[in-house]
Design a protein around this nucleic acid. Structure first.
Length: 459
RNA sequence: GCCGGGAUGGCCGAACGGUAAAGCGCACGCCUGGAAAGCGUGUUCCCGUAUGGGAUUCUGGGUUCAAAUCCCAGUCCCGGCGCCA
């Protein structure tokens, strides 16, 4: 949420943000609402002042036994009440509209962000890990095929048990995923993160605090209600990212200066409806309705947030470096950045299995595994998270940042493809072996059930 | 799930229909060679350049000229009973 004073003092800046982020709202109307509200508010305050005076007069008159005069004053008070009601009703309505409009204004991008329309305008900052690539098989088999061949991924049964977009990860695949999670958590623990195991359902107030609501209701799963039912603050949703519970952990609180910077990491499943995403990327373990992620959340002093953004980026990168997976880092442009962010980097890992037009020269494709963002005080203001710079001073909004400690499934994809061997087995990255009882190779399993027979995979 | 009690500033805590005490903490000022103590002022949000005004006792409704206070609904906390990995 933007500070309302910025709308009054520098509306052009807001207009610019709307333009470069490609957000379409009637900003002039919002300004007009604010103006009219202030007028009514002043008038209402005046009437209320009068009424307060009359009211305390009544108190005095009653106590000194002047019943008649008191009666007169009571009548006068009644008149004021009617008048007030009219004005305040109108003012309340305007304020509500203003608040709602305020929630739909996006964060203003930082001056260092490249201006652009869509992903084509993102700027690549650098690549890592391409100098010393592994020897790959002639044809790298895409993860969804090799995952099924080795019986590590099972999309059909996931669809049977739950629905399309859900999957079973099995055997060594499941072990690999567990290992990845534990590995990430310990890397970040070394970097000074405190572990948090968050609740999975979160209420609407939390979803609003981090910016998922009201604009993105259709992307999240409702709990105990129909998707399109109206919702209030206490209604529940399945978390789309652990950012929601972890950031909102301190909602409506004031932290102490010595608490900062505060670094939390949270492993959780994430639930996304991916509404309207059909046709693009529905295959495999890349865009699914439920996936695991280790999320990094930082609470910092405002003047430190941009340094911390760089720190957060390298903390997230560390995971890929230690896994020796090639990747690149993008500076996201204004149009591709998202509603809540002031600046954002994406980390994309190289998955060599599927050649795609947008991929690197080596073939394969890029997979976004992490977004590292600075929200400045946008979320803090929505969620009411403040800190006290010095014990005496008044509280001010802190800055929040977050980054995926990389999304687990897409790293699984990269491992299944990049660590693939000629004989169709998968080498376990060295960094993960301690988390898999020293296992070095994944050779797959014999599938269970007669449906596998026809595919030539059975006995 | 049922029954009972509760929610007031950064913290503690009074007022229990007449318009939100006191204390602690913290800051500023006075005092001091300096500090402590002491004294004074301040310490939520909104409108206003400002004098100033308004709002605010968990949230939302209601009763009343007037609600922290009474009534209804909800949320959370505490205690008891029940159920339960």
């Amino acid at each position: 949420m933007l500070d309302r004073s910025i709308l009054r003092e520098d509306p052009e800046k807001v207009r610019w943000a709307l333009d470069v982020k490609g957000v379409d709202v009637d900003f002039d109307e919002t300004l007009a609402i604010d103006e009219e509200w202030r007028e009514l508010k002043a008038k209402g305050d005046e009437l209320r002042h009068e009424r307060n005076e009359v009211s305390s007069e009544i108190g005095e008159l009653k106590q000194t036994g002047k019943e008649e005069e008191a009666q007169e004053a009571i009548e006068r008070s009644g008149e004021l009440k009617t008048e007030l009601q009219e004005i305040e009703e109108r003012a309340d309505e305007l304020e509500e509209r203003f608040e709602r409009a305020l929630l739909e204004l996006p964060q203003i991008p930082h001056e260092s962000v490249p201006v652009g329309e869509d992903e084509a305008d993102n700027e690549e900052r650098y690549r890592e890990g391409f100098d010393d690539l592994r020897d790959l098989p002639e044809e790298v088999v895409p993860h969804y095929d090799i995952g099924e061949e080795l019986d590590l991924l099972d999309f059909e049964r996931g669809a049977k048990v739950t629905g399309g977009g859900y999957q079973f990860v099995k055997g060594d695949g499941a072990r690999l995923e567990h290992a990845l999670i534990q590995f990430m958590l310990s890397v970040h623990r070394e970097q000074g993160y405190t572990d948090v195991f968050p609740p999975i359902p979160v209420n609407s107030a939390s979803m609003r605090g981090t910016g998922q609501l009201p604009k993105f209701a259709e992307d999240a799963y409702r709990v105990g209600a129909r998707q399109d039912d109206e919702y209030d603050d206490d209604d529940l949703w399945l978390l789309p990212t652990a950012e929601v519970p972890v950031t909102n952990m301190y909602r409506d609180e004031i932290l102490l200066d010595e608490d900062l910077p505060l670094k939390h990491q949270a492993y959780s499943p994430n639930f996304r409806r991916e509404a309207g995403e059909h046709g693009t990327e529905t295959r495999g373990y890349v865009r699914v309705h439920q996936f695991n992620k280790v999320e990094l959340v930082n609470f910092v002093r405002p003047e430190e947030s941009y340094d911390r953004l760089e720190g957060l980026l390298s903390e997230a990168e560390e995971v890929l470096k230690r896994l020796e997976l090639p990747y690149r880092v993008l500076d996201m442009c204004t149009g591709d950045m998202g509603f809540t962010q002031a600046k954002k980097y994406d980390i994309e890992v190289w998955a060599p299995g599927d050649d795609m037009a947008e991929g690197p020269e080596e073939g394969g494709r890029w997979l976004e595994v992490s977004s590292v963002s600075n929200f400045e005080d946008f979320q803090a203001r929505r969620a009411g998270i403040q800190f006290r710079p010095e014990h005496h001073k008044s509280a001010q909004y802190l800055h929040t940042l977050n980054g995926s400690g990389v999304a687990v499934p897409r790293v699984m994809v990269a491992i299944l493809e990049y660590y693939q061997n000629d004989d169709g087995s998968i080498t376990v990255p060295e960094a993960l072996r301690p988390y898999m009882d020293g296992q070095e190779l994944i050779e797959g399993h014999r599938p269970v059930g007669e449906s596998a027979l026809g595919a030539g995979e059975g006995e």
